[in-house]
Design a protein around this nucleic acid. Structure first.
Lengths: 142, 142
DNA sequence: GTAAAGCCTAGTAACGCAATAGGAAATAGA
DNA sequence: TCTATTTCCTATTGCGTTACTAGGCTTTAC
């Protein structure tokens, strides 16, 4: 699996926060309930996002999380790379196998490189605002 | 990781067999040595390929493996899907999560579907003969 | 001071991956 | 017919990662 629950949850949470931007800071409890994710597990994920300055968290009464940038300035790729560690489709491209002794002669390496670029380019081309449902979270009355 | 050693080895082995087609049946021992893969582990992988009729195996002295079709009739996608079980980038698209209770409202589902299509389309567009090094394995004398 | 919230460090159960083990069955050639 | 060679088959094991859980500390507003 290229993307595990951690990455998937992170993305859903970011969309959730984008949709509820207008409400100000949103406590973890609320996000967890809305998204059906365990509160404790979500803590880990949010901590990662905060440490990377993608979210700002504030403690205490009235605290919670908000995006640090407008939704159109987040790409799906960066969110997933952060939470997953890497989006490389094969270990060969990912630290571990760096300089696999066979890489010079490997007939399949180009396939992996192309695939990697395809995946990253696509995910870097999708921004958070594109995933926000139109008017979701706003109660416009005409 | 989208593709594990099983799939990577399988692909390398298929290329190896394509390159050495002219030699007739090739014993596992020879492939394992050439590719630097454990013989016992390779057994599993080749068994999978044989069961799917992508290779033909023959026992006994003079036995070994050969492709059942010309290299241009194999796609990388089908080889990997067989050996990996699936190339879905997220569990949501893959049996397990089929009909995730949230799929109706999931804002990220389209991203995964598009990514899945991108990956599969690319890999289904690459055929084995495209990975065979020019003239590799043939000793043409002009 | 207290309730509400985030922050931090561990711990754990289950699973899948990578590989190994040991032998049975088939085949060709001496 | 015996033997070396080779594939085929079923288990098992070690190990790392994933998905979560536990418990306590710190900050903040009222």
């Amino acid at each position: 699996m290229l993307v595990s629950t951690k990455g998937r949850y992170a993305l859903r949470v970011m969309v959730d926060l984008a949709e509820h931007q207008a409400t100000g800071r949103i406590p973890l409890k609320e996000i967890a309930a809305r998204q059906g994710i365990s509160e404790k597990y979500l803590e880990n994920i949010l901590a990662t996002l905060v440490r990377a300055n993608m979210l700002s968290g504030m403690r205490g009464k009235g605290g919670g999380y908000v995006l640090t940038r407008p939704p159109e300035q987040y790409t799906v790729g960066e969110i997933l790379r952060l939470t997953e560690g890497s989006l490389a489709p094969v270990a060969c491209l990912d630290g571990d196998c760096k300089g696999c002794s066979r890489s010079d002669e490997c007939p399949t390496l180009d396939v992996w490189k192309n695939l990697d670029k395809l995946i990253n380019d696509y995910l870097d081309g999708v921004t958070l605002d594109q995933l926000v449902a139109p008017n979701e979270g706003y109660d416009y009355v005409i």
